[in-house]
Design a protein around this nucleic acid. Structure first.
Length: 473
RNA sequence: GCCCCGUUCGUCUAGAGGCCUAGGACGCCAGGUUCUCAUCCUGGUAACACGGGUUCGAAUCCCGUACGGGGUGCCA
């Protein structure tokens, strides 16, 4: 009805953590809204009072904020609009487009199971469809619980145009009457969804493919409510776990919080998710948010479901880390450093270490861990067993350490303490034994560049560590 | 069971009838650069699910089969 700006909504159910698939739905809605200058609305679909939690409502908003998917309107809570839905349901009953149903959930379920067993299609059998006024009154007098069921058309087809898939249609006879108000008096998704999209003048509905079949029911409801116009629908492919099937906990992290805590950047997560089912029309893979917005085309979204690949996400996160300014990266790593070595953190050294780690890390957590040796007291430095084994096997390891200790003791101090000369003088190729020094100084045979590391630690601390390794030999 | 949607390298994808002896990216493998590791560079591996049509010509269009996913809830 409004022919003004496009209006889109992300409408999660607050029944748990925000799944990575839901995040992509939010992202595509947001991207399209921003791309066309539309309005992005957050609507919480909490009609299932029993399963919805305030905690989840808060979490959804936190996660969206963290990702930078800011909404323009809302959050609207459906639980605050029950009156509107119930009034509409009452109207539908008056008009005979819906009817009171006295079957209990358990009864319907049982009948469905019997039908399945006997090879008949399941679905509501229409038992309460044609009750007379008297029959209804009698049942109510018996104190039976009442739900309201929508009467679906008996024949004909339902169809709509999907922006991604084209025409989607189905035979009405395969869709049975469905509940729109539970016997506890609360409205069901289909009803609330239909009414809200109407009231909020939603123009584009982008959601997961799992909702494609429910579209027909929502459309029938809209029609019954007096609206024959349809929003533009686009059903996006689902995200599968490695090996196919639902992406679930057994595949690793499936909630955004887990990725955030593992040191992933919002920009990388968004970039990766955007590319799962869509791509710009050139070969670019690393895209900033503003580039995603500029390039995003709903018409280019794929039709087939995609498998989530943690490896590629990790690579992409590394790319985003490398693309950051040092100042941004420093503040991004800071919280991770604080939780690890809060009081020992010294800022100039931290910044220098971040700078060194930037080109060799894929997550923020990795960066924080790579520099841990800098903020660990000398006597608490943990030496990685494998690295130590490797050190022990080096011929003349003791001599090498002695020589380097002597060098570090007497050399002129600078920001690059390079012991290669004295090692070479021993007749040993420095490259082959450098891991000895890494292990002694950093606790691992691999890590931040050694010359910088010794310099950052300072002469005294470096000597303590080298001597500790020497005497442990 | 019935209904809906889908099917290009292991994975994400390009491909809208001839430009495809199918391109890019991740991964993997092999080299190179480098103070370690990583980054980076070079090269390699590897795919149009199958069967019928339509057409001079099909990865691209149609039909069927197989396979995968979703729905069939008083969940959303």
């Amino acid at each position: 009805m409004s022919v003004n700006t496009p209006r889109l909504r992300f409408s999660p159910a607050p029944t748990g953590f925000l799944h990575i698939g839901s995040v992509r739905t939010a992202l595509y809605n947001w991207l399209h809204a921003r791309h066309v200058g539309g309005t992005f609305i957050l609507r919480i679909e909490d009609t299932d009072v029993a399963r919805s939690t305030q905690e989840s409502v808060d979490q959804i908003q936190q996660v969206l904020h963290w990702l930078g998917l800011e909404w323009d309107e809302g959050p609207y809570l459906q639980s605050a609009r029950f009156d509107a839905y119930l009034a509409a349901a009452a109207r539908l009953v008056d008009e005979s487009r819906a009817y009171e149903c006295f079957c209990t959930e358990a009864e319907v379920k049982e009948r469905n199971e019997i039908a399945m067993r006997e090879g008949r299609p399941p679905g509501y059998d229409g038992r309460c469809r044609h009750l007379t006024v008297d029959e209804r009154a009698a049942r109510r007098a018996d104190g039976l619980a009442v739900s309201i069921r929508f009467r679906t058309p008996d024949d004909g087809r339902s169809s709509f145009t999907d922006l991604i898939r084209g025409e989607v249609s189905v035979e009405w006879s395969t869709i049975s009457d469905f509940v729109i108000v539970r016997s506890n008096g609360t409205p069901v998704f289909f009803l609330a969804n239909a009414i809200d999209d109407l009231d909020m003048e939603i123009t584009h509905v982008l959601r997961g493919e799992d909702l494609i079949d429910s579209t027909h029911r929502v459309l029938a409801l809209r029609h019954a409510l007096g609206h024959d116009d349809q929003p533009i629908y686009a059903h996006m492919p689902l995200i599968l776990g490695p090996g196919g099937g639902k992406l679930s906990k057994r595949h690793g992290a499936v909630s955004v919080e887990e990725y955030r805590d593992a040191g992933y950047l919002p920009s990388a997560l968004l970039n990766y998710l955007a590319l799962l089912g869509w791509g710009p029309d050139d070969d670019r893979e690393i895209l900033r948010n503003d580039e995603l917005i500029a390039e995003f085309e709903l018409e280019r979204v794929n039709t087939s479901s995609a498998t989530f690949d943690p490896k590629k996400l990790e690579w992409m996160n590394g790319e985003h880390i490398r693309a950051m300014t040092l100042a941004d990266l420093v503040s991004a790593v800071l919280p991770f450093a604080r939780t690890r070595y809060a009081d020992r953190l010294d800022v100039p050294r931290f910044e220098r270490a971040v700078n060194l780690a930037q080109e060799r890390a894929t997550t923020l957590v990795q960066i924080a861990e790579q520099m841990a040796f800098l903020f660990t007291p000398d006597d608490q430095l943990e030496v990685d067993p494998q690295s130590w084994d490797k050190l022990v096997k080096v011929e003349r390891a003791g001599t090498i350490l002695d020589t380097v200790i002597d060098f570090v003791e007497n050399c002129e101090w600078s920001d690059q303490i390079d012991p290669r000369g004295v090692i070479e003088a021993l007749g040993v190729k420095p490259g082959k034994v450098m891991h000895v020094l890494y292990t002694a100084v950093e606790g691992r045979s691999q890590g931040l560049p050694l010359f910088d590391s010794i310099s950052m630690l300072g002469r005294e601390s470096a000597l303590v560590r080298l001597r500790a390794a020497r005497s442990r030999l």
